[in-house]
């Protein structure tokens, strides 16, 4: 009944060193990023089996138990659709006009971005980190750095993509910073996530900066990570005090960050090229 204590000790030391090397590689280089999807294929059956209980539960929930409520929902949706349709008509006219003007300016044409609906699988309710797990992965073409929206504005970006699952960091996560511009003044700033509550902050703004309460901030497309023109936040507070050399600016995200169940993954129609953000076109979008 001997199973080699000494042998298992050397094996442990070797494997421990190997794990440390792997951790170092994963943290400081991208070399494991390419192997991750391949190794991920091994655990695909695990994810498939683990999905079964949730599938059964959602199927059971989807059964139409309450006809009256369904009718009520249907009526509300119908009215909402009518409202949206009327707005869409106006937008289509504006879009056509915009295209015509752009072609006159011989600027690059506008094609709509592609989106895909995703569902939230798991929410990290930790007070300092704002991340979600969603049910889309590299199978659907999700990539790291991809922008994620809801119906009202930018939610965040994909920070890790697996085969079937991806992790999304919300814009309020303390690790996030988004290049934005004010719609009113065209001022380019960086909005930082605070990790505390549902708020963004814009640091290092001089007291003379043209930013007011109520300004809507949209993505500026600078940094080439987020496509241009998606609404991000509304400025709620601009405090200037004599003790501080910078303005204290707080902005509230337009996306409903506290009640996310569905979100949209965004594929920009074309890569954001620097020529797109030349000063000539700024007034037209500002």
């Amino acid at each position: 009944m001997t199973y080699g204590i000494g042998r298992s000790r050397t094996r442990f030391v070797v494997l421990a060193l190997l794990s440390l090397v792997l951790m170092g590689l994963d943290t400081y280089t991208d070399s494991l990023k390419q192997t991750r999807p391949i190794v991920g294929l091994i655990v695909v059956p695990v994810h498939l089996v683990a999905m079964i209980p949730a599938l059964i539960l959602t199927q059971a929930n989807a059964l139409p138990f309450d006809v009256a409520r369904l009718q009520q929902d249907y009526q509300a949706l119908k009215e909402h659709r009518l409202l949206l349709n009327s707005r869409l008509q106006r937008l289509e006219a504006i879009e056509a006009e915009n295209d015509r003007l752009r072609s006159l300016l011989s600027a690059t044409g506008y094609t709509p971005d592609e989106v895909l609906l995703a569902e939230v699988v798991q929410v990290n309710v930790d007070p300092y980190s704002r991340t979600l797990l969603i049910n889309r992965g590299t199978v659907e073409g999700v990539y790291e750095g991809q922008a994620v929206l809801d119906a009202n504005g930018l939610l965040g970006q994909v920070v890790r993509s697996g085969v079937f699952r991806s992790t999304v960091a919300l814009i309020t996560d303390s690790s996030q910073a988004i290049p934005v511009m004010s719609v009113r003044s065209g001022l380019h700033v960086l909005a930082y996530g605070t990790g505390q509550g549902n708020a963004l902050t814009v640091p290092f703004l001089e007291p003379t900066a043209n930013l007011r309460e109520g300004d809507v901030l949209v993505t500026s497309g600078l940094g080439q990570r987020f496509p241009k023109g998606y609404p991000v936040a509304r400025v709620t507070q601009v405090v200037s005090s004599l003790e501080e050399s910078f303005l204290r600016v707080t902005a509230l995200p337009l996306a409903q960050l506290d009640s996310i169940s569905e979100l949209l993954l965004l594929w920009p129609a074309k890569p954001v090229v620097p020529s797109d953000i030349s000063p000539k076109q700024d007034p037209s979008s500002g």
Partner: peptide, 20 residues
């Protein structure tokens, strides 16, 4: 290591603790 991959964690961390 499999758990590291399945849970999208830092690769090698759970491998180390499980080996220990």
């Amino acid at each position: 290591l499999l758990l590291d991959v399945a849970t999208f964690g830092l690769i090698g961390r759970l491998a180390l603790t499980k080996a220990l």
